[in-house]
């Protein structure tokens, strides 16, 4: 074992004592970040190169500052994103949501699919779709000025059309033309406040987490927005909380002009996102 791995083992214990949910991962990721290697290359760092600032970043993580705020980086599918205070840190569950969206767009067999990401935050969803769906035209909207500082950095040089504004009234110019609307809107019920982990509660923007008593306020509004934007046959994909799998598909009803509403689990088999197709006239 080299010095760094020995220090990582100690840091793991400290983070575990502080209640960090995956202490070994975080101890290794912090070490990898500070020494400029991948997690699986920690054994290659010579003892002389050990950076003592490691214990400073471990102390920050011990105080439950998010790992991604310390490193300034979040990874999402094939992307490396810049994140920090003011913007929501992308979660792995959303990788599955985007996976489903990519499959849905490919199945449409449209030459230049038009995609809208509502409440884009760091830009994770929009950028992943732009990267993985060739020739897609991706549009994204974000309300928060603090978040947009990060979104703009991440989208620099990309072909995503980014706009500032309210998701509910966004993109009047695209009405009826969109093939896919995707969103990871705030959905945590206010009643769940006490169960939210400190990294999220104290560091993710409130605007990105909560939406009314049952967490569904914004999703109810987005249903209308999605219906307005989509062409007939277009598809909507919305992430939600694990407790909302029974409710969200019922927001996309036949009476409101939807078909094939369904709910899907994440990789832990927890209800995670709803999808529906805009009914043909």
């Amino acid at each position: 074992m080299n010095l760094l791995l020995a220090e990582v083992a100690q840091a793991t214990q400290r983070l575990a004592d502080a209640g960090v949910p995956s202490p070994r991962t975080d101890a290794e990721e912090l070490a990898a970040y500070l020494h400029g290697v991948k997690r699986g290359e920690l054994h290659t760092v010579p003892d002389a190169d050990f950076d003592a600032r490691y214990w400073e970043v471990v102390a920050r993580r011990e105080a439950r500052e998010p790992l991604q705020h310390i490193t300034g980086r979040a990874y999402f599918r094939y992307l490396e994103l810049q994140v920090g205070p003011g913007v929501f840190v992308p979660r792995p569950e959303t990788e599955s949501v985007v996976g489903w969206a990519i499959d849905a767009v490919r199945a449409m067999d449209v030459v230049e699919p038009c995609i809208v990401d509502l409440c884009t935050g760091s830009g994770a969803i929009a950028l992943a779709l732009a990267q993985e769906v060739p020739r897609s035209r991706v549009h994204a909207v974000e309300l928060s000025e603090d978040a947009l500082k990060w979104t703009r950095r991440n989208m620099e040089g990309s072909r995503v059309d980014l706009r500032q504004g309210d998701a509910l009234t966004a993109f009047p110019d695209l009405d009826g033309q969109v093939d896919l609307v995707v969103s990871n809107p705030p959905y945590i019920p206010l009643t769940e406040w006490e169960y939210v982990a400190p990294e999220a509660r104290d560091h993710d923007p409130e605007l990105a987490l909560f939406s009314g008593e049952d967490g569904l306020d914004l999703i109810r509004g987005l249903e209308r927005t999605a219906h307005r934007l989509l062409r007939p046959g277009g598809v909507v994909v919305v992430e939600h909380a694990d407790t909302q799998g029974g409710q969200v598909p019922w927001i996309f009803t036949e009476e409101r002009g939807w078909a094939d509403a369904a709910d899907h689990p994440d990789l832990n088999n927890r209800p995670r996102f709803a999808t529906a197709r805009k009914a043909l006239p």
Binding site: S22, L67, R91, E93, I188, E192, A197, A208, T243, R272
Partner: peptide, 18 residues
């Protein structure tokens, strides 16, 4: 199988283990 947080997953937990 992926890392399963003790909480609800999604926005409520900042999952770092991928």
């Amino acid at each position: 199988d992926v890392y399963r947080s003790s909480g609800p997953g999604g926005q409520g937990v900042n999952t770092t283990d991928s």
